[in-house]
Amino acid sequence: MKNMLLFALMCAAFGGAARAEKADSGKQTEITAEQGVADEVRQTRTLTGNVVLTKGTLTMKAGRALVTIDPQGYQFATFWAAPGKLATFRQKRDGEGDLWVEGEAERVEYDDKTEMVKLFAKAKLTRLEGSKKTEEAEGPFISYDSRRELFAMENTATGESKPGGGSVRMVIQPHGAATAPAAPQGKK
């Protein structure tokens, strides 16, 4: 119970101001790649080679991607990393200043309807203020819900935690004033 409370507090600290920029939801989606196929009957877009999706401040990159459009027009994108690399996403967060969230994994899924990002295998999520990292999370699976300001980490790449399945890691940087450097020691 104590560990669950600690984890909940850490999640609250990490997710507190991590909402995606609200203006992104109404923006057009632009995708570039070396090759692409659009299937209008199935409402899918299959892209390969240096795939880059941009929607407002959201940018996702990978070796290949599949984008599906549902009957209401919402997009669901799955990005797979190129061999030896990781698929990535980066998005500006709402709030004062230059706030960002970025992540990487072997597979990244983005649901336009729920504004949920899921990172599978070698997952890492980082919050930034400008270029300064404020928090980092890593593990086999991370889901990031930008609407509810919540992320969850699981110890297996399937998205569920299992006893003995591995571990997750979180680093939270101190907030507020920087620690003053130690005063130089004088001669006695």
Rank of each mutant, 00 (worst) to 15 (best):
L66P: 02
G73F: 09
A123G: 01
E129K: 15
M60P: 02
K27P: 00
V67N: 11
M1S: 13
A82E: 13
Y74A: 12
Q185A: 14
V41K: 14
L58Y: 02
E21F: 07
G73N: 05
G186M: 12
F14N: 06
V52W: 05
L128H: 03
G73P: 04
S146F: 00
K124N: 05
W80L: 12
R42N: 12
T68F: 06
T158W: 03
S131M: 10
G139M: 07
R169E: 08
G49V: 00
E160M: 11
A65K: 04
P83Y: 05
K132M: 03
R148A: 13
E21R: 13
S167P: 01
A20N: 11
T158D: 08
E40C: 01
K132L: 06
A180T: 15
A33N: 09
L53V: 14
R42L: 11
A87Y: 04
E106F: 00
S146A: 15
T156R: 03
D112S: 10
C11G: 14
K85Y: 04
G139D: 08
K132E: 10
P163G: 07
T48V: 08
L66V: 15
S131R: 10
F151G: 03
G166K: 05
G95V: 03
G56L: 04
A12C: 08
W80P: 00
K162V: 15
S161D: 02
A183G: 11
Y74C: 05
G176D: 06
V37G: 01
E115N: 12
Q35I: 00
G164A: 07
K113G: 01
E129T: 10
F120A: 06
M170K: 06
T68D: 09
P181L: 13
T48M: 07
L53N: 05
V108Q: 03
T32S: 15
A81V: 05
A81S: 10
V67H: 08
T48Y: 06
E109A: 10
A62L: 05
M4C: 08
F151N: 05
F76T: 15
F151V: 03
E40L: 08
R107C: 09
A81W: 03
R64F: 00
L99T: 12
P181R: 15
Q72G: 03
L66M: 13
Q173F: 06
G73I: 04
K61Q: 15
K133M: 10
A18S: 15
A12S: 09
K118M: 15
A152D: 09
E21P: 01
C11M: 15
F141V: 07
T156M: 05
E136R: 14
A123E: 04
G56M: 04
M60H: 02
A62K: 00
M116E: 10
Y74P: 04
T48P: 00
R64D: 06
F141D: 04
V41N: 14
A18I: 06
A8L: 13
Q35H: 12
